[in-house]
């Protein structure tokens, strides 16, 4: 097409495309994200009240949320909550768990090894890669500069 340049067309596209409903999305992300974190906090309190030391109760609460997240993913409920929660379900550890469970579940048709096993990390893999890499880089830095 000769008449409209790419840049001019990009402008037209921007005008014609409805923007995300942020006025609805951001408050919902705040509410649902806050609720999930509060639930996690409730588990921390529950475990510490049962005598679990704090440094174990914190990861235990995360593990509990991971389990619930995986369960709701299997029950076909998580994605319905995430539709409204957006970042509210993505950012807590629940997002990570769903990102691992969903492809594992979906790609089971390709077998337990190459399907479920390999594809489990197609969405969450980068989080592990860059999280660990950042940690190692940090460790090297503090070792070299004796900042520990």
């Amino acid at each position: 097409m000769e008449t409209v340049t790419n840049r001019a067309y990009a402008q037209m596209v921007k005008k014609a495309s409805p923007p995300s409903k942020s006025a609805r999305n951001i408050p919902l992300a705040f509410l649902i994200g806050g609720a999930i974190c509060t639930l996690g906090h409730a588990f921390i309190k529950l475990y510490t009240s049962r005598g679990v030391p704090e440094e174990t109760a914190f990861p235990a609460a995360s593990v509990t949320l991971v389990f619930l997240s995986a369960l709701f993913t299997g029950l076909n409920v998580y994605d319905k909550l995430a539709k409204y929660g957006g970042a509210g379900t993505l950012v807590p550890i629940t997002g990570f768990a769903n990102a691992i469970t969903a492809p594992a579940l979906e790609f089971k048709t390709e077998g337990y090894v190459m399907g479920l096993g390999a594809k489990m990390f197609i969405i969450a893999g980068p989080v592990i890669v860059y999280g660990i890499a950042a940690g190692v880089a940090y460790g090297i830095i503090i070792y070299l500069f004796r900042l520990y």
């Binding site: 999305n25 539709k83 957006g86």
Partner: peptide, 17 residues
Amino acid sequence: ERQFRFPLEYGGQRTPT
């Protein structure tokens, strides 16, 4: 969806477009 985008149970938000 599973070829071009995300597994079905993945909790993502679809844009208005």
